[in-house]
Design a protein around this nucleic acid. Structure first.
Lengths: 156, 156
DNA sequence: CCAAGATATTTCAAGCTTAAAGTTTTATGC
DNA sequence: GCATAAAACTTTAAGCTTGAAATATCTTGG
């Protein structure tokens, strides 16, 4: 065989490591800002917002396991957050006839109304925080991240 | 927040919101994978790794406030993580002559050795997890994220 | 039917995280 | 000097997070 110079498998990992660090810092910076604003302006938290956002897209409701899969967090975690949302009257757990292990989690009317308000502010904040990223860059970056993600989907 | 596209049909913010969601999902996916491997292979955690990584770059040591600023986390948070690292013998708090409020936090020899091992594995993992991102894309993406960050530096 | 396994969820212990309040030490204005 | 403010850090309470163990329910092969 005419084995040419091997394509240096890891030799160039430096740029990827740098990318990861930037990625992490960017998302942490934005996350911190969002958390602070959610707390200050709506007296809520990011995890609660995440759960409500997921439920908002699913008027028919979601199972606990749907939620944890969609949000990329553990089962036990969702239990606690939903417990608190239920106790605040924003969400309900509806027992199902068919399978008594599960329950459909849904936004209440109050939860829906509350989320719509917060989501509008949230979208504005993101526009502001990412204001310096041009729409074109945003689309290109999104594309890169999407292809990255599809590389990982279904691994866990 | 790992929410899907919100129904708000605001014309211009849409792409940025989508970008934010992708960014968050990507970093959470990678973070989860790293956390799991750190636990399984080295019986440690991401926050511990982050602190040790910061200290590794600063052989002369860092103040608690330096650490919390650099890592983008709260003061009290760093206190707990450093406490645990100290109790494991990986880090020391050296009282300073000048200012008795502060102490220099440094890696111990054991901590340095331990971190070097873990960091090597970590760099390999990142190379693997971001393997589908070309080096060129990685550099371009890093550039975008860097300019974004500089937009925010000094705001808090 | 029913035992054995699979699923869906909750509980638990340990650790991470923040914001706010408290402690100790240093710096400053008068 | 010395009261007062500022700075560096720790403590605290509440909530988030995970992985593992426990519970309850459903499914399936015999």
């Amino acid at each position: 065989m005419v084995a040419g110079p091997l394509p240096a498998p890891s030799g160039t990992g430096k740029d990827r490591l740098r990318l990861w660090i930037r990625l992490l810092r960017a998302s942490r910076t934005i996350e911190a800002e969002l958390r602070e604003r959610l707390k200050k302006e709506f007296d809520t938290t990011l995890p609660r917002f995440d759960v409500m956002a997921a439920l908002y897209r699913a008027p028919e409701g979601m199972l606990m396991s749907d939620l944890s899969r969609f949000l990329l967090v553990s089962n036990g975690n969702v239990t606690g957050i939903v417990d608190r949302l239920v106790s605040e009257g924003l969400v309900t757990r509806a027992r199902r006839n068919g399978d008594r292990r599960t329950s459909m989690v849904r936004l209440t009317d109050e939860g829906t109304k509350s989320f719509a308000t917060i989501a509008a502010a949230h979208e504005g904040w993101i526009g502001e925080l990412l204001g310096k990223v041009s729409e074109e860059d945003a689309r290109r970056l999104t594309g890169m991240l999407t292809s990255f993600r599809s590389n990982w989907e279904g691994r866990e």
